[in-house]
Simulated scan of single mutants.
Amino acid sequence: MEALSVREYRNNLAASFTKADNGEQVLIRRKNEIYALVKVGREDLMITPELQARIDKAREEIKSGKCVTLKSSEDIDAYFDSL
């Protein structure tokens, strides 16, 4: 599929969104970069039960001190150097 220029995209916004709604790939070329118009479903913006469980676990680890605390740029440099 050929990418639309920004001008072509701007002049055909409704058609581009209709194509994306129908699952078609819409590519937009800006200078030397290519971008894709992608439909994002409501479920893609929600926290799944699995993600919530990971968040809860991370919060518990932080509360119990199972984390690394870095207070300065020197701490950050030392931490990354230790990896």
Results as ranks from 00 to 15, higher is better:
Met1Thr: 13
Met1Leu: 11
Glu2Met: 06
Ala3His: 11
Ala3Gln: 03
Val6Phe: 07
Val6Gly: 05
Arg7Gln: 15
Arg7Phe: 10
Glu8Ile: 11
Glu8Phe: 05
Tyr9Phe: 15
Arg10Phe: 12
Asn12His: 13
Asn12Glu: 11
Leu13His: 12
Leu13Arg: 15
Ala14Glu: 08
Ala14Ser: 10
Ala14Phe: 06
Ala15His: 07
Ser16Met: 04
Ser16Lys: 01
Ser16Arg: 00
Phe17Glu: 11
Phe17Met: 13
Ala20Arg: 05
Ala20Pro: 13
Asp21Glu: 12
Asn22Gly: 12
Asn22His: 12
Asn22Ser: 12
Val26Asn: 00
Leu27Gly: 00
Ile28Val: 15
Ile28Cys: 00
Arg29Lys: 15
Lys31Arg: 15
Lys31Phe: 11
Asn32Glu: 15
Asn32Leu: 14
Asn32Thr: 15
Asn32Val: 15
Glu33Lys: 09
Glu33Pro: 04
Ile34Glu: 04
Ile34Phe: 00
Ile34Leu: 02
Ala36Leu: 02
Leu37Met: 11
Leu37Arg: 03
Val38Ile: 12
Lys39Arg: 14
Val40Asp: 10
Gly41Val: 08
Arg42Pro: 03
Leu45Arg: 06
Met46Lys: 09
Ile47Gln: 11
Glu50Asn: 08
Leu51Asp: 01
Gln52Asp: 09
Gln52Pro: 01
Gln52Tyr: 07
Gln52Ala: 13
Ala53Val: 04
Arg54Val: 06
Ile55Arg: 05
Lys57Trp: 01
Ala58Ile: 02
Arg59Lys: 13
Arg59Leu: 14
Glu60Ile: 11
Glu61Lys: 14
Glu61Thr: 01
Ile62Gln: 05
Ile62Trp: 07
Ser64Arg: 13
Gly65Ser: 06
Lys66Pro: 01
Lys66Cys: 06
Lys66Val: 06
Cys67Trp: 10
Cys67Ser: 12
Val68Gln: 13
Val68Tyr: 14
Leu70Met: 12
Lys71Met: 09
Lys71Leu: 06
Ser72Ala: 07
Ser72Glu: 07
Ser73Val: 09
Glu74Gly: 00
Glu74Tyr: 01
Glu74Trp: 00
Glu74Met: 06
Asp75Lys: 10
Ile76Arg: 05
Ile76Met: 09
Asp77Ile: 14
Asp77Thr: 12
Ala78Cys: 07
Ala78Val: 07
Tyr79Thr: 04
Phe80Leu: 14
Phe80Tyr: 12
Ser82Leu: 02
Leu83Asp: 00
